[in-house]
């Protein structure tokens, strides 16, 4: 493996949890729901994946456990915001607080234990392609899932009837309701999908990225994922680009330091954030594009009238 490959691999690993969590949240937001609890669902996924992998001895089961944990946790958000129409912003933030606390309690028994790592799956033939084979086709299953999620969500949103309905709800829940679309049920499904993705992203942290459990190990990645959705102006392919850009700048600044560029590390650490703002500003110069994609009823509660 040469150095370029190694660096790209590092970037891919760093970007995968961001990508997964962001793609899930994208679907949620496209349905008109703003769930700021990504960090909380992610950390629940991380602790559940680690714990289940430890108990069953299977990292694969751990990954599934993380996914389910994220999904179950998101139901709590769904019940409050969709059934009881509580404020979405505040509920999402509360979900994060709850997740950080609960995961810490669950995880107490697992501190200081080396974790199981989810093994890479080599895809025959494809993995032998020079240079990119090693990068794209000899990866852990969660990486594959993240790519499948991007392609799948892109297809779903823009090519399927169900996706059309989901976008319609996001744009105007009242009109969608009037047309007979089941607003609340669709939103529940979207929220659960978002939770599952965030849970899997958390699982990636605790059984692939750094196979161990420590409190608060998500370290703000859920927030970055949220920002990436906006950055991508709610387009799945741009989430992919955004996550990898963010990963590339984050890893790039570490390399710059190791090379000894002599710029204060705080400025280098700030680069990924500044780069994200800069790119978004450039994208948003195209006003029409942004407006088209923004779900108009984002964050607004819906109660069916009868």
């Amino acid at each position: 493996m040469d150095m370029t490959q190694a660096i790209i691999l590092t970037i891919m690993t760093a970007a995968t949890p961001l990508l997964l969590a962001a793609i899930g949240e994208l679907v949620v937001e496209r349905s008109g729901v703003l769930n700021l609890g990504v960090e909380g669902m992610m950390i629940m996924g991380a602790v559940a994946a680690f714990a289940i992998a430890q108990i069953t001895g299977s990292a694969g089961l751990g990954a599934i456990g993380g996914l389910i944990a994220g999904m179950l946790f998101s139901l709590l958000f769904g019940f409050l915001t969709l059934t009881l129409v509580a404020n979405q912003v505040a509920t999402g933030l509360a979900l994060t607080i709850l997740g950080l606390g609960l995961s810490g309690m669950i995880g107490e028994a697992f501190i200081g234990l080396p974790g199981l790592k989810l093994a890479a799956i080599e895809i025959p033939v494809l993995a032998d392609i020079p240079f990119i084979g090693r990068l794209l086709f000899n990866q852990d299953p969660i990486f594959y899932m993240s790519i499948i999620a991007v392609i799948g969500v892109n297809w779903f949103l823009f090519k399927s009837r169900a996706g059309l309905r989901l976008r319609a709800i996001g744009d105007s829940h009242s009109s969608a309701h009037a047309l007979g679309v089941k607003v609340v049920r669709t939103r529940y499904l979207a929220v659960m999908f978002g939770g599952a993705c965030a849970g899997l992203a958390g699982a990636h942290l605790s059984i692939v990225y750094t196979p161990q459990w420590v409190e608060n190990m998500t370290a703000g990645r859920g927030w970055i994922a949220l920002a990436l959705v906006v950055f991508a102006s709610w387009r799945p392919t741009r989430v992919l680009a955004g996550a990898y850009l963010f990963g590339a700048v984050s890893i790039g600044q570490l390399h710059a330091q190791a090379l000894g560029v002599g710029i204060p590390s705080q400025f280098l650490s700030a680069l990924p954030y500044l780069a994200t703002i800069a790119v978004l500003v450039i994208i948003s110069l195209n006003r029409r594009m942004t407006l088209i994609n923004t779900p108009a009823s984002l964050g607004k509660s819906f109660v069916p009238e009868r």
């Binding site: 942290l205 750094t210 370290a219 590390s265």
Partner: peptide
């Protein structure tokens, strides 16, 4: 490599990889 944190497993892992790569 300065990571500007006492504690962020992901970032520390990234820094470790960067150093090994170099």
């Amino acid at each position: 490599v300065w990571v500007n944190t006492w504690f962020d497993p992901g970032k520390e892992a990234d820094a470790a990889k960067a150093l090994l790569d170099q």
